[in-house]
Design a binder for these strands. Structure first.
Lengths: 335, 335
DNA sequence: GTGAAAGCGCTAACAA
DNA sequence: TTGTTAGCGCTTTCAC
């Protein structure tokens, strides 16, 4: 019993055919006669043969993998998109290589590296802060954006972020709020911009006041939500409701407000964004804008595979809808 | 300007040397003269050459990637271990391939497949429910377990799970509780077993009552924590404190208890396990057992790389310490 | 210190 | 339908 794994040569010898026939049998079984197919398959079983992916890839001038570039794997938000990506890529026999842009120093350089390296048949970008020039690379593989990106014309799977902001404000206004504030994500992030836009334009449409003091800066984390709560507590002229650009921030916000002895929604109404798992387990439940993250991953992967297989660098972008989820954290304003 | 990327041949031609010299210059620069090294490096710059990893791997009989087998990428718990793994594997030029055992039907078969496929230089297992026999595979690559696994003798990075259970019970007992319950993870899971053991043995040591009605079954999710809360509410003879085998469950539990109009820790004290991010943002903050997940990933990756590079199938296992984090969710029992 | 040459294991023309 | 053959791009002896 040999320690080394069997090669296609071994199978060919055992089956009494050429290596080409073995290869054919495995990749397009219809093209060989049943007799040879049976012989080959039993030789495969006997030898325990598995194709050597590396050799196959080299010969076929492909890599069999897709690189996913994201800011932070540990963020549950991305983790769920990854799950969606994986559910499509794995069955299609593509490996998913994950590159964390936060772990290294220069994210742009990393991207440039991956573009040039030829280490992947395609790229999925989940980081909206990368610089666009990098993509000028001449022989780059197909790329799909799974987030918004200012001024990019790349094929993308995007969520109706502006509409999410609009839904949030609309809901709060309908509950009777007129003094509505916002906690943003990190300023450089496009999601931040778009949700803020939806927020502001809806205030305008509804004729509600726009007070710059009521727009607080966050960075999507729970910590920054808690900080926003402290800032809100310190305002002399507090808004009665807040739309926060992520559920994580909303969670941190609510916790801090409650620890200060105030009540949600009694003293302040809160609407988040994402509908992460915890939203329904908080007390009160978190009213939020649902964005289907697994689906974003699934569609992005499908788009990318289409591009890879048709050897195209372009594909129709896709918009994924958001939805308001009503729970207990938003109610009528205090009299 | 050619569309195709430059090969080692192109570099050799431009530099006026052989391909062997180019290869040497790039892998062990010390072995060539400064003159040739300079010529080669400038030719590399000029042509924009990058080594073709696939070809290199084929020639060197390696794959350059590590497979990580886990139950569910979307789980933030695993996501953080992945971050740790990635922070070691990426700089070492290993790709990290992620295989989700939940997405396919037969996890054991998947594992067997990966073991035999030769698609990776090493494996990291994060799934404690896989069957041990599968590992009998003859020519398998190095494997590291980053979780406990009944009866396995594989090199592993483990956490002091039993001690965690003991710390939780000890803390609650010290606060004055004598009626202490437990919410477990899924029964098949080894973590479940070990934490339960720590829980039970400490009750015994401290002479506290062991009531089977006070041990509720969960599955680590927030939903199951909420369900446990409903079960607890339905008990005629309620424990005054609970140790839950995950922070997610504790979060779901607290939310549901609060929605029922009761208070934590006023009516019931809660201790979780993990110290996930939200623990400090709940109101009250969640008292819990900290396990350093990123570090688990880091150590597992380091262990695996050592094994790969020394071509060994064995390595000393490692235990990572846990720690009690005191916050507000555990207090004295109600009189 | 450097070059020539032999493959790693596979697939896809092309020929038979 | 099947076999022959020529590489994919690289690394590594083995000579010099």
């Amino acid at each position: 019993m040999d320690r080394r794994t069997a090669t296609i040569q071994d199978v060919a010898r055992v089956a009494g055919v050429s290596t080409a026939t073995v290869s054919r049998t495995l990749s397009k079984p219809a093209v060989v006669t049943k007799a040879t197919r049976d012989a080959v398959l039993s030789a495969v079983a006997e030898t325990g043969y598995r194709v050597n992916t590396t050799a196959s890839n080299l010969r076929r001038q492909r890599t069999g993998s897709v690189i996913v570039l994201l800011p932070n794997i540990a963020n549950p938000f991305f983790a769920q998109i990854l799950a969606g990506l994986s559910s499509v890529l794995t069955p299609a026999e593509y490996g998913m290589l994950i590159a964390d842009t936060q772990s290294g120093p220069d994210a742009d350089a990393r991207l440039a590296h991956y573009l040039a390296s030829g280490q992947a048949d395609g790229l999925v970008l989940l980081d909206g802060t990368l610089s666009a020039e990098v993509l000028a690379s001449p022989a780059r593989p197909p790329i799909v954006m799974a987030c918004e990106w200012m001024g990019s014309t790349l094929p993308s799977v995007r969520v109706e972020n502006a509409r999410g902001g609009a839904l949030a404000v609309g809901h709060l206004a309908q509950l009777g709020h007129r003094r509505i504030g916002h906690v943003t994500g990190p300023p450089a992030n496009v999601l931040t911009q778009t949700r803020l836009e939806g927020f502001l334009s809806t205030l305008r449409e509804l004729g509600l006041p726009q007070n710059p003091d009521w727009v607080l800066e966050g960075d999507f984390t729970m910590d920054s939500g808690a900080a926003a709560a402290r800032a809100w507590l310190g305002l002399t002229d507090r808004p009665t409701a807040l739309f926060l650009s992520s559920d994580e921030m909303a969670t941190g916000f609510i916790g801090e407000v409650q620890r200060a002895g105030l009540s949600v929604p009694g003293d302040v109404s809160v609407v988040g964004f994402d509908n992460i798992e915890i939203a329904q387990h908080l007390a009160p439940g978190l009213t939020t804008i649902r964005q289907p993250r697994t689906q974003i991953g699934v569609r992005a992967a499908e788009l990318l595979l289409t591009m890879i297989e048709s050897n195209s660098r372009d594909a129709p972008s896709e918009i994924i809808e958001v939805e308001l989820i009503r729970r207990g954290s938003a109610g009528p304003p205090p009299d």
